[in-house]
């Protein structure tokens, strides 16, 4: 597997009044062809912003630095024209809230056809056919009728299927799904994840699943990246990360997963404390203040990701102690 997307030393900063907020801090990782990568972290860990930066979709007050290469070509902060040729065609994104994420004043059919006409050079009739085909692929009930509906006339699960159809319509190489199931109930969540998995297998699309839910990532991905305070703290195959988590944060997340065998009367284990303020810069390890293994060194020296690129790597001093 060769790297489809290479992210190196990516930083995203927001200007908030006089202050600066660091959402992503020198993040490096690869997405390989055809893989499913789970990106896990609490809200504010920088997981969405990293991928929005890659696609040039950051808010006006945000700046991205570093390097993002798609098939070896630099795309970070590329001119709009170059990005437009890539976005929706080679790399697509599925957003969290499909109600606010779909244009309320345009029919579903139109929103799908627009992509097909722009990127696939289709005429109106071909695009309509393609849109219908996509709605069938995502198994929307009564797809022909849905083409003429507006987003508000669909249920949440149906809207998310439309969002996925929108992302997949041009058969991109990479689909970034940003919390695609957070707004949905558990049954629909499972259906949507299964659908994403099928699409990935059928079209050999690489999928990045951004989620705060470790169990969702585990069920879905080949590989997992754990982000904390804008940095990568652990990455590895899903199997390895679950079997032997190397970073205390990952271990804490795993320990706080509810299970059916847990005593219902006991409290769910949690990680004490709050994630650090993205406004502040931390000298040592950002997790030190919540870590029960914290040593003197953790407060003064930032741990680097040991063996980056290896099967399983983490940024923690415990590993070199």
């Amino acid at each position: 597997m060769s790297a489809l997307l290479e992210v190196r030393d990516l930083s995203v900063r927001f200007n908030v009044g006089d202050a600066e907020l660091n959402a992503v801090r020198s993040l490096s990782f690869d997405v390989s062809e055809g893989e499913c990568l789970g990106v896990v972290g609490e809200s504010g860990a920088g997981k969405s912003q990293a991928f929005l930066a890659a696609l040039g979709l950051l808010a006006d007050n945000a700046r991205a630095r570093g390097s993002v290469r798609y098939r070896g070509r630099e795309i970070l902060n590329a001119p709009r024209r170059e990005l437009d040729a890539l976005r929706g065609r080679r790399m697509a994104m599925v957003f969290q809230d499909p109600l606010s994420g779909l244009t309320p004043t345009a029919r579903i059919g139109h929103q799908l056809e627009e992509s097909a006409r722009r990127h696939l050079g289709m005429n109106a009739r071909q695009a309509r056919g393609k849109a219908l085909e996509m709605l069938e692929t995502v198994r929307l009930p009564d797809p022909r009728r849905c083409l003429a509906l507006y987003p508000f006339e669909l249920s949440g699960g149906m809207r998310q299927r439309v969002m996925i159809a929108l992302g997949m319509i041009c058969e991109p190489d990479l689909l970034i799904a940003d919390e695609p199931t957070t707004a949905l109930d558990v049954t629909i969540q499972a259906q949507i994840l299964r659908l994403l998995g099928e699409l990935q297998r059928d079209a050999n699309t690489s999928i990045v699943l951004i989620t705060h839910d470790l169990s969702v990532a585990a069920a879905f991905s080949d590989r997992i990246m754990i982000l904390y305070n804008g940095r990568l703290v652990e990455s590895g195959t899903t199997h390895e990360v679950f079997r032997s988590p190397k970073h205390p944060y990952t271990a804490g997340l795993l320990a706080s997963l509810p299970s059916l065998t847990i005593d219902p009367a006991s409290d769910l284990p949690t990680i004490p404390g709050q994630p650090p303020d993205a406004m502040k810069s931390v000298q040592g390890c950002a997790f030190a203040e919540r870590c029960k293994h914290a040593m003197d060194r953790c407060w003064s020296e930032r741990p680097v990701l040991a063996a980056p690129g290896a099967q399983h790597a983490a940024a923690c001093h415990l590993l070199s102690a």
């Binding site: 994420g101 779909l102 244009t103």
Partner: peptide, 22 residues
């Protein structure tokens, strides 16, 4: 500022089309 405008841009539409259609 709306999310659906970001979606329209993520589709690779040029800004002109984003503004007119969305």
């Amino acid at each position: 500022r709306a999310n659906f405008v970001r979606t329209a841009r993520a589709k690779g539409l040029p800004e002109r089309q984003v503004v007119i259609n969305h």
